[in-house]
Each structure stands twice: as structure tokens, then as C-alpha cells.
């Protein structure tokens, strides 16, 4: 039976790396901005970053909801619905995020459905990450040891009750670190929306680059902004994990 390996196992070396990145990022930021005359383009970039955050937040919401629906359907729904969920997951995992984005943005209008760049971006990225998230959820639920189901059965707990009270709370803790990674993937993928004319951070960077030609400074600062956002996500997920796992993970393994 696979042991329920969760995040904290690798967390102490990762914490070191995190600190190193933060220091490096800060030093790099100072260095770049000191000779970049950052005042010229920082406000523009921050406006772009706000759009990036908006797409990331909306996409996260769509991703979690899509993953929840798909997982529930795949594990517990009757056959046709289950097939639909499997098809969704395979389709969105099997094709590339940019293709999905272009399909929603360029092809859907041909079929009479026009989405704004923002809607298309949130929908495409959310559905894309949601497909991966569904795999994460299913894995976490299936990784709860069989003995837990059996013990609940022996106590006469019903199936739904067992799922809600016994299995899901344990699966939830196991899901947090991989979801953290997915949220970072999503944040990085938001840069794709610049290719459908949404003026996010990546779009502003391109635009400023063309007008000012100060490529290294602009893209350097942009990379650091993305890094800062990623670190925020990581820290938030760590905090959530600590809170959720406080009771569960004092020892290594308790069945």
C-alpha cells in the first residue's frame, strides 16, 4: 500500500532553496532597478501584473471547480457522465495549453460564441489546470489506505459518511502540495494570454520592449515580479499545509 507521502518530507531543503531564491531575487531586483531607471516602466508593469493576478485568481477558481466536478464524476457518477469526465481530462491534458487558448479565442467565434480575451484566458487556463487537478484529487483519494475504508465499514459508517468524514479530510492534506505546484503552473501559464491581446504582465513587457528597447532591464524586472508572485503562492500553500496537517503529520504514518 503506498504510504501517504506529503509535502513536509522535502520541505527543509526546499525551504533553504526558497530562502536562497528570495535573497537572490531581492539582490537582483536592487541591481536591475538601480541602473534601469525603473520609474519609467514600473507603473505600467504593475498594471500588467494586476491583470496577471486577475487571470490567475479566476483560473484557479475555474480549475478547482472543474477538478472537483471531474473527480466526483469519474469516481462516483454513472457511466456516460464518467466517460465525459474522462474525455475532458484526457483532452485537456493531451493538448497544449496554448492550443486550447487559441481554440477558445479563434475557433469558438467561428461557431458563433465570442469570448472576451479575459474570459477565454480564464476558461482555457482554468480548464487546463483543472484536468491535471482532477488527477491529483483522484490520486489523493485513492492513496488513502484501504484499511481506512475497512475500519469505517466495520464501524458501519455509510459510504458517503466515510468519504466525507474519514477519507476526504486525509486526502485534502495530501492534495495541498501538488495543488500548490499546479497553481504556480497556472500563474506561469497566464503569460500565454498576452498572445491573445490581453494586456497582462507579459504583454506589457513586450510592448515596453518595443518602445524603449531596454530589453534586459524590462524582462529582468518582469521575471522578478513573476518570481515574487510564485513565492507568494508557495508561502500561502505552505501555511495552508501546516494548518491542515498539524494534527495529522506529527508522526510519519498513522493508519
Amino acid at each position: 500500500m503506498p504510504a501517504n507521502r506529503t509535502g513536509p518530507t522535502g520541505s527543509s531543503p526546499a525551504a533553504g532553496a526558497l530562502a536562497a531564491v528570495a535573497i537572490l531575487g531581492f539582490a537582483g531586483g536592487l541591481l536591475v532597478s538601480s541602473f534601469a531607471g525603473f520609474r519609467d516602466f514600473l507603473p505600467e508593469l504593475l498594471r500588467g501584473a494586476a491583470t496577471t493576478v486577475q487571470v490567475a485568481a479566476g483560473g484557479s477558481l475555474v480549475a478547482v471547480v472543474a477538478a472537483l466536478l471531474a473527480t466526483t464524476a469519474r469516481l462516483y457518477a454513472p457511466l456516460p457522465l464518467r466517460w465525459l469526465a474522462v474525455a475532458y481530462v484526457e483532452l485537456f491534458r493531451g493538448t497544449s495549453a496554448l492550443v486550447q487558448l487559441f481554440w477558445l479565442f479563434f475557433v469558438l467565434p467561428m461557431l458563433g460564441i465570442s469570448l472576451s480575451p479575459m474570459t477565454a484566458g480564464i476558461a482555457a487556463l482554468g480548464l487546463n489546470i483543472g484536468a491535471y487537478g482532477s488527477e491529483v484529487m483522484r490520486g489523493a483519494i485513492e492513496a488513502v489506505p484501504r484499511g481506512q475504508w475497512e475500519a469505517a465499514s466495520a464501524l458501519n459508517l455509510g459510504r458517503f459518511r466515510t468519504l466525507r468524514r474519514i477519507v476526504l479530510p486525509q486526502a485534502f492534506v495530501a492534495m495541498i502540495p501538488p495543488w500548490g505546484n499546479l497553481f504556480i503552473e497556472l500563474l506561469k501559464a497566464t503569460s500565454l494570454v498576452s498572445l491573445i491581446t490581453l494586456s497582462d504582465l507579459a504583454f506589457k513587457a513586450q510592448q515596453l520592449n518595443q518602445t524603449t528597447l531596454r530589453t534586459v532591464e524590462i524582462f529582468g524586472i518582469v521575471l522578478l515580479i513573476y518570481l515574487a508572485l510564485s513565492l507568494l503562492v508557495t508561502l500561502a500553500m505552505r501555511a495552508l499545509e501546516r494548518r491542515a496537517g498539524r494534527r495529522l503529520l506529527r508522526g510519519k504514518e498513522a493508519r
Binding site: 537572490l24 507579459a202 513587457a205 534586459v216 529582468g220 518582469v222 510564485s230
Partner: peptide
């Protein structure tokens, strides 16, 4: 650092 930032920006850079 590389894992925390978008590939697209790295390509541009």
C-alpha cells in the same frame, strides 16, 4: 528561479 517564472518570458529574454 527557472521553475518559478514563465517559459514564455524566458524565451523573450
Amino acid at each position: 528561479f527557472i521553475r518559478s517564472t514563465p517559459l514564455l518570458i524566458q524565451i523573450f529574454f
